[in-house]
Amino acid sequence: MAESTSLRRAMAWPGQYRMLVMMWIRSSLAYPASFALTLVSTMLITGTDFVAVVLMFSHIESFGGFSLGEMGLLYGTASMTLGLADLATGSIERIGQRIRTGELDVWLIRPVPAFIQAVADNFALRRLGRPFQAGLVLVIALGHIELDWTVAKGIVLVVSMLTGSIIFGAIFVLGAAFQFISIDSAELANSFTYGGQQLTQYPLSIFGKDIVRAVTFIVPLAFVNYYPVLFVLGKPAPLGLPSWIGLLAPAVAVAMIALASVAWRGGLRRYRSTGS
């Protein structure tokens, strides 16, 4: 009985999320010129990272064993997954501010989970700039890579975009949950989200074995794009790990969802029992 009601409630979440998001989209499209301008500048701002890579390649032929085309694939997947995660859940990083202004209380008196309201809050369509730009880099990069494409590789690449986005999304939520303990720590999560994107746009092996271990077993950023891309490109995995390790990305994504969900609930419970 209780199971079925909570299931029915969970079934309503996508609809509730869409409703709130549509409202913000409508309001941002009310000024189309201004929207287009911010979209383009978001593309440019987020694209400067890849410009840096291209500039580097004016001096080198390969970076950590990756050609420019292959770097484009790594960059594109890193930026795409972070961009999609930021689009869907990035607003949650302002939770500390929302606690301070009392807005969280307003969310808590409504019949929609606070989580849904927090991720949909001020939904900014201009954040599409990053995925657009990443998509552009991906298309160009795929045109420059010599590769025997198989169905399996195609599926792994597409699925990894989804699971990578989920992993980044979970990190956004974990960072937000931490703000229930330390209200001013919003920027701390940036180390793992934007820092994670910065890290995963390069072949991780260049950072040394300790870092590769850390992003495999502690903060599983290597599963966002690195291992799946290695699988697609047919390159060996570091640390003597099997080459199919990239196929574990979906399992890692599920584990991250579970972890983020526990952390968020814990944070909210703490808020509701301490009032701060």
């Binding site: 950590g64 919003a186 920027e187 180390s191 820092g195 910065q198 260049i206 950072f207």
Partner: peptide, 23 residues
């Protein structure tokens, strides 16, 4: 706390860039 988290983020990015520039 904001200052502290900012410095932490700078440090993390510092290590990433070091890896890149070393290569």
């Amino acid at each position: 706390i904001a200052t502290l988290s900012g410095a932490f983020t700078n440090t993390v990015f510092g290590f990433i860039f070091c890896g890149v520039y070393l290569t």
